[in-house]
């Protein structure tokens, strides 16, 4: 019973932007296999012609009037920022130096 291998776990962890230690990758592979094995139950369900339902409420394209409303102040928006500089959220370098 192996639905997902360590290499796939590494790929998914990268997609999820999640650093995993080697031991965590092993554990994750084992437990995800158990859960995915349980999920195989769905494979046996006939869903031919059944429409998918992402939401229980039949509301669509909820709009509001295009009017100016009060919003969060800049000061409040930065109160929880772990790293701020001159009115910007500061992040590590994204673009490589040439």
């Amino acid at each position: 019973m192996s639905i997902i291998d360590k290499k796939t776990v590494e790929h998914v962890a990268n997609l999820a932007r999640l650093y995993l230690t080697d031991a965590e990758k092993e554990d994750m592979t084992e437990i995800l296999n158990k859960i995915l094995d349980f999920e195989q139950k769905l494979a046996g369900l006939n869903t031919d012609g059944v429409k998918p339902m992402a939401h229980a409420v039949p509301l669509e394209n909820v709009m509001r009037d295009d009017t100016v409303e009060e919003s969060l102040s800049v000061r409040e928006a930065f109160l929880n920022a772990p790293c701020e500089a001159e009115g910007f959220f500061k992040v590590p370098r994204i673009v490589e130096k040439d």
Partner: peptide
């Protein structure tokens, strides 16, 4: 939380 993020990411990948 990590397990569920991983399962969900996998199911959507």
């Amino acid at each position: 939380v990590k397990r569920r993020i991983m399962l969900g990411t996998y199911a959507l990948s």
